[in-house]
């Protein structure tokens, strides 16, 4: 599978990564090579094989829906780039 410059831009946007023209070109090359590697999977017929998401077969554990943690908002927000009055600040999304 060959990935071109436009494909890279589309994927980069899905992943929210700004790329320069040069980076897009470079990634087109390396991503194509990696997809070439990945496509070796097609050598094996996996029809009817149950997909394995996880090494432990047990179902995810559920916990009781009770409050266990204390409020640590100030501590958590201390590492945030921008906060005000207990809120995370982001650029305006609604006009």
């Amino acid at each position: 599978m060959l990935i071109n410059n436009d494909d890279v831009k589309k994927i980069a946007h899905l992943a929210r990564l700004a790329l320069t023209e040069q980076e897009s070109k470079d990634f087109a090359g390396s991503l194509s090579r990696i997809l070439g590697l990945i496509e070796q999977m097609n050598a094996v017929d996996t029809a009817g094989v149950e997909p394995m998401a996880h090494p432990s077969e047990a179902a995810l554990r559920l916990r009781e829906d009770v409050v266990k943690e204390e409020n640590q908002r100030d501590q958590f927000q201390a590492v945030a780039p921008a906060t005000e009055a207990g809120l995370y600040l982001v650029p305006r999304v609604l006009e």
Partner: peptide, 9 residues
């Protein structure tokens, strides 16, 4: 970035 893009793809 490369691995994020392979995954996203």
């Amino acid at each position: 970035k490369r691995r994020i893009m392979i995954g996203a793809y």
